[in-house]
Amino acid sequence: MSLPALHGVVPILVTPFHEDGRIDEESLANLVEFNIAAGVHGLGVALGSEVFKFNEAERAQVTRVVIAAANKRVPIVINSGAAGTDLAVFYSKAAEAAGADMLMVIPPSFMPVSSDEIFDYYKAIDAAVGIPVILQDVPQAPISPGLALKIAAECPNVKYIKVETLPVTSKVAAMAEQAGDRLTIFGGAGGSYFIEELRRGALGTMPFCSQPADFVAVWDAFRQGDQATARQHFDATIMAINRLAVQGGDIFYFIHKQILVRRGVIRTAVVRSPTTAIDRITAREIEELIAEIVPVATPFRQLAA
């Protein structure tokens, strides 16, 4: 089966910060290089990047750094969803103008809205841009298979959907059955159900960016028909990190950033406030697990000129 333009492992980049909270451009460029070297099929800037904590200048800054660092080697997906239609259109047009290859758009979630309003929201974004759009189905703003199909039928740029509404495995299966001929389906939620999603019709995942080589190895094994190796590698390298990362709040940011610090890819594991306070026991568990996953700590070093 031929694969669509975007498929496989498309990690969502964390945003590295200096100790004073400024965006660390050198670490961000390093992170892009680290992931591309691992063989990923694309990269994204989205909720896992803390975009909801950025001002507009910082959105533009991160977009610029990521696109420049990738240098057209892989597609770049920029999240441009917002609480208002006009704002989402503004973010979408800005991302396209900056050189983004695709957009990922979450529905409005601050206040409940009807399916008709969600449709109109995507219709407005689609009319404003000329690059592919990924629908983002999340628990706080779910997109039903029927609505996804309606949006895809009326919005020519809508080509993909990232499914994250629980239970994700059954939602992926339902989406593949009803809209799989119109939309390429991605999993999300940290890639915790990557193999199960692939079995049910997904053609990729958008996990965090601290273990790209491991996710690529799982993808490659699955695509080669070796599900036993895919499962063995997933359980040995990814499962424990994902299990710990969902213990509470947003500790997943710190865990994935700390892995990258230990690997010498980024300078700090700073997460912007507000963020979950990590208790002493959890901190020790995180340190022990990361030391097991990455046995030797490496000092920060520049990966590419």
Score class of each variant (00 low, 15 high):
residue 114 S to C: 03
residue 293 I to A: 06
residue 255 I to E: 04
residue 61 Q to R: 15
residue 103 L to C: 01
residue 126 D to P: 13
residue 258 Q to V: 03
residue 271 V to W: 07
residue 185 I to H: 01
residue 37 A to Q: 08
residue 270 V to A: 06
residue 86 D to R: 03
residue 154 E to W: 00
residue 218 V to Y: 05
residue 224 Q to S: 13
residue 268 T to G: 04
residue 228 A to M: 07
residue 64 R to D: 06
residue 64 R to P: 01
residue 154 E to H: 09
residue 170 S to K: 12
residue 1 M to I: 09
residue 100 A to L: 03
residue 297 A to Q: 10
residue 37 A to H: 06
residue 205 T to H: 06
residue 122 Y to F: 14
residue 80 S to Q: 07
residue 44 G to E: 02
residue 213 A to H: 11
residue 22 R to F: 01
residue 155 C to F: 09
residue 204 G to W: 00
residue 253 Y to R: 00
residue 253 Y to E: 05
residue 211 Q to F: 14
residue 242 N to V: 10
residue 247 Q to G: 09
residue 61 Q to S: 00
residue 288 E to A: 14
residue 287 E to A: 15
residue 57 A to M: 10
residue 211 Q to V: 13
residue 305 A to T: 12
residue 82 A to S: 15
residue 50 E to I: 02
residue 269 A to G: 06
residue 152 A to F: 13
residue 245 A to N: 05
residue 212 P to K: 14
residue 190 G to T: 08
residue 83 A to K: 07
residue 71 N to P: 02
residue 119 F to K: 10
residue 80 S to H: 00
residue 40 V to G: 02
residue 105 V to S: 03
residue 212 P to T: 01
residue 273 S to A: 13
residue 137 D to H: 10
residue 304 A to Q: 14
residue 127 A to F: 01
residue 153 A to F: 03
residue 210 S to P: 00
residue 42 G to M: 02
residue 245 A to D: 13
residue 158 V to A: 06
residue 98 A to E: 03
residue 151 I to Q: 00
residue 165 T to S: 14
residue 110 F to Y: 12
residue 190 G to L: 13
residue 228 A to L: 05
residue 74 V to K: 09
residue 132 P to M: 12
residue 47 L to Q: 09
residue 280 R to Y: 13
residue 47 L to C: 06
residue 198 L to G: 08
residue 129 V to D: 08
residue 72 K to Q: 13
residue 97 A to S: 13
residue 207 P to G: 08
residue 146 G to P: 03
residue 278 I to A: 07
residue 257 K to L: 05
residue 272 R to Y: 03
residue 80 S to M: 10
residue 250 D to A: 01
residue 101 D to M: 04
residue 78 I to G: 02
residue 100 A to V: 06
residue 120 D to Q: 14
residue 205 T to S: 15
residue 69 A to L: 01
residue 135 L to D: 03
residue 100 A to R: 08
residue 159 K to E: 07
residue 286 I to P: 00
residue 229 T to V: 14
residue 185 I to E: 00
residue 43 L to D: 02
residue 18 H to T: 12
residue 25 E to P: 11
residue 65 V to M: 02
residue 63 T to Y: 01
residue 90 F to H: 14
residue 60 A to L: 04
residue 51 V to E: 09
residue 193 Y to K: 14
residue 219 W to R: 09
residue 148 A to M: 10
residue 160 Y to A: 12
residue 148 A to C: 05
residue 60 A to T: 02
residue 10 V to L: 13
residue 214 D to H: 11
residue 71 N to T: 00
residue 254 F to D: 01
residue 284 R to P: 00
residue 200 R to V: 05
residue 139 P to R: 12
residue 140 Q to R: 13
residue 27 S to H: 05
residue 96 E to G: 09
residue 152 A to R: 06
residue 131 I to Q: 12
residue 206 M to V: 11
residue 226 D to W: 01
residue 148 A to Y: 06
residue 177 E to N: 11
residue 214 D to N: 14
residue 83 A to F: 07
residue 124 A to V: 08
residue 288 E to G: 04
residue 300 F to L: 15
residue 93 K to S: 11
residue 135 L to F: 03
residue 150 K to Y: 03
residue 233 H to N: 07
residue 269 A to K: 04
residue 270 V to K: 13
residue 277 A to R: 10
residue 303 L to M: 12
residue 275 T to I: 05
residue 26 E to C: 01
residue 250 D to N: 15
residue 134 I to C: 08
residue 265 V to I: 15
residue 189 A to D: 14
residue 126 D to A: 13
residue 283 A to M: 13
